[in-house]
């Protein structure tokens, strides 16, 4: 049901954890739906220097979280904002159709973290 890439990111998730001194934090989903994704960002000169995640959720939720951290690390905030949930799913060689709706929120979590950063660091 899951692609090899999904299972790889699920079994060996990248960038798991918390950044204590994060510049921006974003959280999407809720426990009722069975998915919560939390993204921590460290930003320097408009570039995402470090990123970590914590996820409560199914295989797809964990894999997309892991994948999005790889996709945005080193990117400018502008570029990171352009990454969509669909692009994350595509980078994992796709998700089962039912998961596209409920567990594919990782890019939203990054966007929420960036918005948090911008709110805390007005230009």
């Amino acid at each position: 049901m899951y692609t090899e890439k999904v299972m790889d990111h699920f079994s060996n998730p990248r960038n798991v954890g918390e950044l204590k001194d994060a510049d921006g934090v974003g959280e999407v989903g809720n426990a009722k739906c069975g998915d919560i994704m939390k993204i921590f960002l460290k930003v320097e000169n408009g570039i995402i220097e470090d990123v970590k995640f914590q996820t409560f959720g199914c295989g797809a939720a964990i894999a997309t979280s892991s994948m999005v951290t790889e996709m945005v690390k080193g990117k400018t905030l502008e570029d990171a904002l352009r990454i969509s949930n669909e692009a994350v799913a595509e980078a994992l060689d796709g998700l089962p159709p039912v998961k596209m709706h409920c567990s594919n929120l990782a890019a939203d979590a990054v966007h929420a973290a960036i918005k948090d950063y911008i709110a805390k660091h007005p230009a």
């Binding site: 299972m7 079994s11 069975g34 409560f56 959720g57 199914c58 295989g59 939720a61 409920c102």
Partner: peptide
């Protein structure tokens, strides 16, 4: 923790179980 990710991890160890999670 969520049931499906638990089942997948158990499955990787050869253990078959089930869950009442939405997934």
């Amino acid at each position: 923790i969520e049931g499906e990710s638990l089942l997948l991890n158990l499955d990787m160890k050869g253990i078959a179980a089930s869950s009442g999670s939405a997934c």
